[in-house]
Write a protein that binds this DNA or RNA. Structure first.
Length: 555
RNA sequence: GCCCUUGUAGUUUAAUGGAUAAAACAUAAGAUUCCGGUUCUUAGGCUGGGGGUUCGAUUCCCUCCAAGGGCGCCA
C-alpha cells in the first residue's frame, strides 16, 4: 500500500467510525465507503457519497446524515484538512497539502513499478485472445482484439492479478483442409501450372507467399507425391508457416503469449472423449438423426447443439468444450475470452457447456470486441479474408504506425462499434492523440537534460515548495495512477488507461505553460519541480507501456 | 422472424447510479524575449424518441426507432 492509498484508507476508517459513533446504522453493518475524485476541484480532493447511500438505512435526509457524521468525526491522525457538506449530501474532503507530495516520493522510489498494486490479490486469471485461424493474415478486427487483450493483461498484471495469456490455435478443423487445398493450388500456380482455387479457398496474399517459399525450398518435387501425401505435406507446411507468420506479426505488434494451445493436441490425449463422457454422465447428451447432441437448451441456449455429426466427426464445439474443461482444470479462478462480435452467438452454448460439466458458468466471462468498420475515400470498405482485399494488421501498422494503431484501438471501449477512417488515420498521423502524450514525455526528458547541463538535479528535499495550483493538479493526477490501474483491471476496461494518459499529459502541459521548471534564481524550487516532472515522466512511461505504446526521449 | 451489441458536441469518442455530461480533431479568436509552438488560454450539448425504478439515470428496467452482428451436422 503506497502513501496515497494509506491516506485514503485512513479517511475511510475515520468516516466509518463516525458513522458508527453517530448511531446512524446498526452496529456491525458493513459499510462500503467509496472515495471519488471530484471532477471540479472546488469540491475538494476527495468526495464521498456515503450520506446519500445511507438514506434508506438511517431514515434521514442525506444532508442531516452528513452533519451527524461530521459531528462525530475525529480527524486526529488523518491527513484531513477539512470536510464540507455540499450539494445533495456530498462530503467534500480537503487533505493537507504535504500529503500530496508523498506521491512524488512514491513515484521516484518505485520507478517502473509505480502504479502497481495488490488490488487483484493474486487471483489467477487466464485471458484467451486473438485465437485467429491459422489460415490467413491477421486483419483489422484481430488488431483491435490484440490491442485490447494485451493491454488488459498488462493492466491485470499491474493490478496484482496472476495473469496468463493464451492463444488457441484452431489447427484441426475443415478450414485446415481448405488451407492445404488452397496452398496446393497456389504452389502449382507458382510453378507456372494451371490450377483452380477450391470453392471455399483462401485467397489471401499470404498463401501465395507461402507457396512461393515452398517452391523455393522443394522445387517441383511435391508433385511427385501421391495425392494423400501431397495433402499431408501442404497441411503440415501450411500450418507451420502460417503459425510462424502469426507469431511473428503479433510479436512485432508487441503482443506475446504465455501459452499457444493447439486444438489438435486435444485429439491425441483423450481429452475430448473425457469431456464427452462427462457430459453424458451428467445426462446432457442425446442421439437424434444419426448425430450426437448436447442439450444446451437446459442451460439457456436457444437450441440444442450437435457434438458428433452423422459422419462420425466432431463439430467445432466439441473440442472447444474439452479445451475449456482443460482450462478450468488448470486451476484458474477466472477465464476471460476476448472474442470478435461475430462470435457472440456462441457464448450461450459455451457457458451452457461449462455449467453442464459441473462448473459455475460465471467462471467464464466473454468480452466482445465490436466490429471495426473501415472507411476509405468516404465509403465503407468491406473486409473479407476470402476476397483477398482485406486490410491486414501488418498493412495497417505500415500505414499508421505501430504506436498510433495500438493507442487508437485501446482508447475506445472494446464493446462499442468503431469507425476507422483510413484516410484520416494516415493523414492525421502527425496530430494523433498518441503524439500528445508522447510529446509530454519527450518534453520532460528535454527539460531534465537541460537542467542537468545547468547543474540542477531532482530532489525530494523541498517538496513542500510545490504549492502552485497547477502543481497541485499534477500531484493529484500522478497520485491517481494506482487507483486508475486497479479500476481498469476490475472492470476490464483498459481504455481507461488511455484516457488517463490524455489527462495527465494535459495536466502537465498546462502546468508547463503556467510555471517555469528551471529557475536559476531558486535552486530549491527548481529541484523540487524537477522531482515533480520526473514523477510525471515515470507515470506517463508506465502508463504507455501498459497499452503497448513507446515513450520516446526525443521526437 | 428470433437473439446479441451499440446510439452522447459538426466528427471520433469519455464519463464505479452522483454535483454545471468531459476530451481530442475540425472551426474562430488570443498567448510565446523563456526549460522543445507536436504547447497553452477562450468560445458549443433537449445524452435517438417515449415510459418506469429512486434522494439522483448517459448508466438499471420496459417499449419504439436506427446501425452493426449472429441465428449451419461451418469454423
Amino acid at each position: 500500500m503506497n502513501a496515497v492509498e494509506q491516506v485514503q484508507q485512513s479517511i475511510k476508517v475515520a468516516i466509518a467510525q463516525a458513522v458508527e459513533k453517530a448511531q446512524l446504522v446498526e452496529a456491525g453493518t458493513q459499510l462500503n465507503i467509496h472515495l471519488e475524485t471530484p471532477k471540479d476541484k472546488a469540491n475538494g480532493d476527495y468526495a464521498t457519497n456515503i450520506a446519500m447511500q445511507l438514506t434508506k438505512l438511517a431514515k434521514k435526509p442525506p444532508r442531516a446524515i452528513a452533519e451527524a457524521i461530521l459531528e462525530n468525526l475525529d480527524t486526529t491522525g488523518t491527513d484531513i484538512e477539512k470536510i464540507d457538506i455540499a450539494g445533495p449530501g456530498f462530503m467534500n474532503i480537503t487533505v493537507k497539502k504535504d500529503f500530496l507530495t508523498q506521491v512524488v516520493k512514491a513515484a521516484l522510489a518505485q520507478g517502473d513499478a509505480y502504479g502497481r498494486s495488490e488490488a487483484g490479490q493474486g487471483e489467477k486469471v487466464q485471458v484467451e485472445f486473438v485465437s485467429a485461424n491459422p489460415t490467413g493474415d491477421l486483419h483489422l478486427g484481430h488488431a483491435r482484439g490484440a490491442s485490447v487483450g494485451d493491454s488488459l493483461c498488462n493492466v491485470l498484471d499491474a493490478a496484482g492479478y496472476d495473469v496468463s495469456r493464451e492463444y488457441y490455435i484452431n489447427d484441426a478443423g475443415n478450414q485446415i483442409n481448405n488451407l492445404a487445398y488452397s496452398l496446393e493450388a497456389r504452389y502449382k500456380q507458382a510453378l507456372g501450372m494451371d490450377a483452380d482455387m477450391p470453392e471455399d479457398g483462401y485467397h489471401g496474399a499470404d498463401i501465395i507467399e507461402i507457396a512461393g517459399k515452398l517452391k523455393e525450398e522443394f522445387g517441383a518435387d511435391i508433385l511427385e507425391k501421391s495425392e494423400e501425401e501431397r495433402f499431408k505435406f501442404f497441411r503440415e507446411h501450411g500450418l507451420r508457416l502460417e503459425l510462424a507468420k502469426l507469431q511473428n506479426d503479433l510479436k512485432n505488434f508487441r503482443v506475446e503469449f504465455d501459452v499457444w494451445y493447439s486444438e489438435t493436441s486435444l485429439y491425441g490425449n483423450g481429452k475430448i472423449e473425457r469431456a464427452l463422457d462427462k457430459l453424458k454422465a451428467n445426462g446432457h447428451v442425446f442421439e437424434e438423426d444419426g448425430a450426437t447432441w448436447f442439450r444446451s437448451t437446459t442451460f439457456g441456449d436457444d437450441k440444442d447443439r450437435v457434438l458428433i455429426k452423422n459422419d462420425g466427426s466432431f463439430t467445432y464445439l466439441t473440442p472447444d468444450i474439452a479445451y475449456h474443461e482443460d482450462k478450468l482444470q488448470r486451476g484458474f479462478d477466472k477465464l476471460v475470452n476476448i472474442w470478435g462480435a461475430d462470435h457472440h452467438g456462441y457464448i450461450p452454448r459455451m457457458k451452457a457447456a461449462i455449467e453442464a460439466l459441473g462448473y459455475d458458468r460465471g467462471t467464464l466471462e466473454v468480452d466482445i470486441i465490436q466490429m471495426v468498420q473501415l472507411y476509405k475515400n468516404g465509403e465503407k470498405f468491406k473486409m473479407s479474408k476470402r476476397t483477398g482485399n482485406a486490410v491486414t494488421m501488418r498493412e495497417l501498422v505500415e500505414m499508421v504506425g505501430l504506436d498510433a494503431v495500438r493507442y487508437f484501438f485501446v482508447k475506445t471501449a472494446g464493446d462499442s462499434h468503431m469507425d476507422f477512417d483510413l484516410d484520416l488515420a494516415v493523414s492525421q498521423s502527425n496530430e494523433n492523440p498518441v503524439y500528445y502524450a508522447q510529446y509530454a514525455h519527450a518534453r520532460i526528458a528535454s527539460i531534465l537534460r537541460s537542467a542537468k547541463e545547468q547543474g540542477f538535479e531532482a530532489s525530494i528535499e523541498n517538496l513542500d515548495l510545490l504549492t502552485a495550483e497547477k502543481e497541485i493538479d499534477v500531484l493529484k493526477k500522478v497520485g491517481d495512477f494506482p487507483k486508475v490501474i486497479a479500476e481498469a483491471a476490475k472492470h476490464r476496461t483498459p481504455h481507461r488507461i488511455a484516457n488517463y494518459i490524455q489527462e495527465i499529459a494535459a495536466t502537465f502541459h498546462s502546468f508547463y505553460g503556467a510555471e517555469k521548471v528551471i529557475n536559476t534564481d531558486n535552486k530549491a524550487l527548481t529541484e523540487a519541480r524537477l522531482a515533480l516532472i520526473t514523477a510525471v515522466q515515470t507515470t506517463i512511461a508506465n502508463a504507455l507501456r501498459l497499452i503497448g505504446v513507446s515513450a520516446p526521449e526525443k521526437m
